[in-house]
Design a protein around this nucleic acid. Structure first.
Lengths: 209, 209
DNA sequence: CCCGCGTTTGAACGGCGGGTCAAGCCGAGC
DNA sequence: GCTCGGCTTGACCCGCCGTTCAAACGCGGG
């Protein structure tokens, strides 16, 4: 499998991967350099041989992980023909824990860490703005496609509609990842599609069950 | 004014207030006991005389601050007669930095800290669920009122509508507090009311400017 | 076979900060 | 005015962790 041979690829990347994994399940605040080293199967010293400081490593790891997620999702969506189906897939991929195949615990946990950090760290703030706008851009592209093909009848700008959908998804995902008893993954999925249908102007086919 | 005499009120509360202030502008991760002590004008030792540990203090401070915000908003909204105006006011109060009179930097910064912490701390998770549900409950009450009075024509349950509005507000508030260049406070306000009008079923009066 | 250099190790350092504590302060009650 | 007990102080302790560093490792080239 990928990355099984010890010294194969880029150590840099191996460490970023390990860091992302550790942050995801311990949380940024509880992440020690030694944890990352252990996860990566190397000595603590080596971490600082490849990165200038813990802070830089953590920031890089956060954006790196979000990058991965974006690329995976983007690649997958591009090959879906219908805008409505693209949207449905995007929503499914965004619901924490809906599709067990994807992601470890959850990319959303990392997003929240990014937000906290971006509040005080200008470097992270810049990265965050880029990531968030790219995320909305992805949605806007889908919307534009749907408007062009006539699947969506709304006359609002794609950017405004994308902002609404992205905000909705963000807000709901937070509740889901927190395991709020009133907001299940399935509930989030339905709510997102409901609102999308009304905002974009398309009909939800009647759902079974 | 309130709290000006040194030993007047409850030290407990004074410390919680100070803690909330420090967390708001330094961030949870950069908050030291000595910072809180300094902010409260007492010695570091005293902090741990009143609280068992730093962790407990921080958790209490977070929920305390959110409590304050909720109570203030709740009290104010209760005296507004029209449901539509209640909603408008709730939105205005929720937009970070829209009304300079209220709040220090922003209650939203604290929310994000709560979320991060709730991901790993079961105690905080419980508090968070309570706070979030109360927040949605507040919105649901407004919605119910509007449905009863005929101001809102949507037939959806108040709970579902409240979830949608709350999620939308959360998602947008995050972007605003991050100072995303594409999401200004004013933009958030308009978007919230737009979506609310469509979801709840009421007409926005024509806006000046 | 040996050299040299990039990589890797893990022991050691140093500072930071949470938590402890013995000692003072001060007001209330006698 | 004295004593008692709750408040308050700030110096101190101690473990933790980011960072440094000297030494070892191992591979490719000569």
């Amino acid at each position: 499998m990928s990355g099984s041979t010890p010294k194969s690829k880029d150590r840099h990347q191996e460490i970023l991967d390990a860091a992302a994994r550790v942050i995801t399940d311990r949380g940024l605040a509880e992440t020690r350099i030694s944890d990352i080293a252990e996860e990566a199967g190397v000595s603590p010293g080596l971490i600082l041989y490849y990165f200038d400081s813990k802070d830089r490593l953590l920031s890089e790891a956060l954006t790196y992980a979000n990058d991965q997620f974006y690329l995976r999702m983007s690649r997958e969506i591009r090959r879906i023909p219908s805008a409505r189906d693209q949207l449905r897939r995007l929503v499914d991929l965004s619901v924490p824990g809906l599709l067990p195949e994807y992601g470890r615990l959850d990319e959303w946990a990392l997003w929240i860490e990014v937000w906290v950090r971006a509040l005080r760290d200008p470097e992270m703030a810049k990265d965050r703005e880029f990531l968030d706008q790219r995320w909305r851009g992805q949605i806007a592209d889908i919307v534009r496609g749907g408007q062009a093909s006539g699947e969506f009848t709304s006359e609002e700008t794609a950017e405004e509609l994308a902002l609404r959908l992205a905000s909705m998804i963000d807000g709901l995902a937070i509740q889901v990842i927190m395991e709020d008893s009133q907001v299940t993954p399935e509930h989030m999925r339905r709510t997102c599609m409901d609102v999308a249908a009304r905002e974009l102007g398309f009909a939800l086919e009647p759902v079974a069950t």
